[in-house]
Amino acid sequence: PPDDERKKAEKAARSGNEEKAREILERLGYSEDEARELAKRLR
């Protein structure tokens, strides 16, 4: 489910793995720019 994926992205971002967070968010349908912004904010 998307919620689980989003949680994974948050966890990745918090542990400093912004790249992985961005990949997950892009898979969820965010654009590259949106995903980058979100990954930064989740950190």
Results as ranks from 00 to 15, higher is better:
residue 10 E to V: 14
residue 36 R to T: 05
residue 15 S to W: 09
residue 21 A to K: 01
residue 39 A to I: 15
residue 30 Y to G: 00
residue 32 E to Q: 11
residue 18 E to W: 14
residue 37 E to A: 14
residue 21 A to F: 08
residue 10 E to K: 09
residue 36 R to D: 02
residue 19 E to W: 11
residue 43 R to L: 10
residue 37 E to I: 13
residue 15 S to G: 10
residue 25 L to V: 00
residue 37 E to V: 12
residue 17 N to R: 06
residue 4 D to T: 13
residue 12 A to G: 04
residue 10 E to N: 05
residue 38 L to N: 00
residue 13 A to D: 03
residue 33 D to T: 10
residue 30 Y to P: 01
residue 1 P to R: 13
residue 14 R to K: 12
residue 27 R to H: 07
residue 10 E to Q: 11
residue 34 E to T: 05
residue 25 L to I: 01
residue 11 K to R: 15
residue 5 E to P: 09
residue 23 E to N: 07
residue 31 S to I: 01
residue 9 A to C: 06
residue 42 L to A: 04
residue 23 E to M: 11
residue 21 A to L: 09
residue 31 S to M: 04
residue 30 Y to H: 04
residue 41 R to N: 06
residue 2 P to D: 13
residue 22 R to P: 01
residue 3 D to Q: 10
residue 35 A to P: 00
residue 16 G to A: 04
residue 17 N to L: 08
residue 24 I to P: 00
residue 4 D to M: 11
residue 23 E to P: 02
residue 15 S to N: 12
residue 23 E to Y: 08
residue 30 Y to D: 00
residue 16 G to T: 02
residue 39 A to V: 14
residue 7 K to E: 11
residue 17 N to G: 04
residue 3 D to G: 11
residue 9 A to G: 04
residue 13 A to W: 09
residue 24 I to K: 02
residue 15 S to L: 11
residue 8 K to D: 10
residue 10 E to A: 14
residue 13 A to P: 03
residue 11 K to S: 11
residue 23 E to W: 09
residue 20 K to H: 08
residue 3 D to K: 08
residue 27 R to Q: 10
residue 42 L to N: 01
residue 32 E to I: 10
residue 35 A to S: 05
residue 35 A to Q: 02
residue 41 R to V: 05
residue 9 A to M: 04
residue 19 E to N: 09
residue 12 A to V: 06
residue 2 P to Y: 14
residue 9 A to D: 02
residue 28 L to H: 02
residue 28 L to Y: 03
residue 43 R to I: 07
residue 19 E to F: 10
residue 19 E to S: 10
residue 26 E to V: 15
residue 25 L to Y: 10
residue 35 A to C: 04
residue 18 E to S: 05
residue 39 A to D: 00
residue 31 S to V: 00
residue 7 K to M: 13
residue 37 E to L: 13
residue 43 R to E: 03
residue 10 E to R: 12
residue 38 L to Q: 02
residue 5 E to W: 15
residue 17 N to A: 06
residue 19 E to H: 08
residue 33 D to M: 09
residue 26 E to F: 06
residue 41 R to F: 10
residue 9 A to P: 04
residue 12 A to P: 03
residue 3 D to C: 15
residue 11 K to F: 11
residue 39 A to N: 00
residue 15 S to C: 13
residue 34 E to W: 04
residue 3 D to L: 12
residue 36 R to I: 07
residue 37 E to Q: 12
residue 22 R to S: 03
residue 24 I to T: 01
residue 23 E to G: 06
residue 22 R to V: 13
residue 9 A to K: 02
residue 1 P to L: 14
residue 20 K to N: 04
residue 5 E to V: 07
residue 14 R to H: 07
residue 35 A to Y: 03
residue 2 P to R: 13
residue 18 E to Q: 07
residue 35 A to L: 03
residue 28 L to A: 07
residue 37 E to M: 13
residue 8 K to T: 09
residue 23 E to K: 12
residue 11 K to V: 13
